[in-house]
């Protein structure tokens, strides 16, 4: 089932993708198009394969021993499962945010400057600009501009997560993958991140895995419902949460299981 609702360009085109951990099949025949400058939410109960799926998009999953895959993932007209891919370059274009902010044990400034430095930006002035604009984009600048040289570990949980988003967008990726980015945050920090996601989608394509169905309903443009490694239904978020086609989707979003 491949469905795209908008006329947005397709960033990822996943076709007949399967994934096994050893002999156990974790993803089954997935087909999904991820549109540009949209928020795509991946929902489903624990163990449904949603985190595994998101990690296939930047090939992080290939580091897990025993993983093998079939099918295609087209990104930038390259088949990242079959073509020879420069992983550093791929991950420059596809950033990732995890459940908990995981800043490096360095200063706020160095955290954000880390990516651009690796990718060859050396001039202090240019780095300063990148750090400032990235921190402004995540609405953290006003809170940290006087403590750029303090340790990032001194920030609150919500600030750390926004710092990690700033670190990710400092390299100007095309896509930001988010694996339950607010599950460790309090409600106010969660709302700030959600607000941020809505703003960031103008510049980036966002794929978010979330356990929080209301969050998916609030912030995403399209939603894919995963169950037992399969995509049961993927469509625009409004339709999925108001008139889901598949009974299993209805049962899951209505809280009857999971």
């Amino acid at each position: 089932m491949t469905e795209t609702i908008t006329e947005h360009k397709t960033v990822f085109d996943v076709k007949d993708m399967n994934l096994w951990y050893g002999n156990t099949q974790a993803l089954k025949n997935l087909n999904l198009e991820i549109p540009e400058n949209q928020v795509t939410a991946i929902i489903g109960p624990s163990g449904c394969g949603k985190s595994t799926f998101i990690k296939t998009l930047n090939l992080m999953i290939t580091r897990v021993p025993g993983v093998h895959m079939s099918g295609d993932i087209l990104f930038n007209s390259q088949n990242i499962l079959k073509d020879r891919i420069d992983l550093v370059n791929l991950r420059k274009q596809i950033g990732m945010i995890f459940q908990k902010g995981n800043p490096f044990p360095q200063s706020v400034y160095d955290n954000v400057a880390y990516g651009p430095r690796i990718h060859g930006v050396k001039k202090k002035k240019q780095l300063d600009e990148i750090v400032e604009s990235s921190l402004k984009d995540v609405a953290l600048w006003d809170e940290v501009k006087d403590r750029l040289n303090s340790s990032a570990l001194g920030l609150s949980g919500g600030q750390q997560q926004r710092l990690c988003i700033a670190r990710t967008i400092a390299t100007k990726p095309r896509v930001v993958l988010m694996d339950e980015p607010t599950s460790a945050l309090d409600p106010v920090s969660t709302l700030r991140i959600e607000q941020l996601i809505s703003e960031l989608k103008n510049q980036y394509t966002i794929v978010i895995v979330t356990h929080n169905m209301q969050q998916a309903a609030r912030i995403s443009d399209q939603t894919a419902f995963f169950l037992h490694g399969e995509i049961i239904e993927s469509t625009d978020t409004g339709s999925l949460f108001s008139v889901p086609v598949d009974r299993r989707t209805e049962d899951y979003i209505s809280g009857r299981f999971g």
Binding site: M213, A217, F241, S242, P244, E250, I253, S254
Partner: peptide, 8 residues
């Protein structure tokens, strides 16, 4: 309960 879909 913040119901969705048919429940809503």
């Amino acid at each position: 309960q913040q119901p969705v879909a048919t429940d809503l």
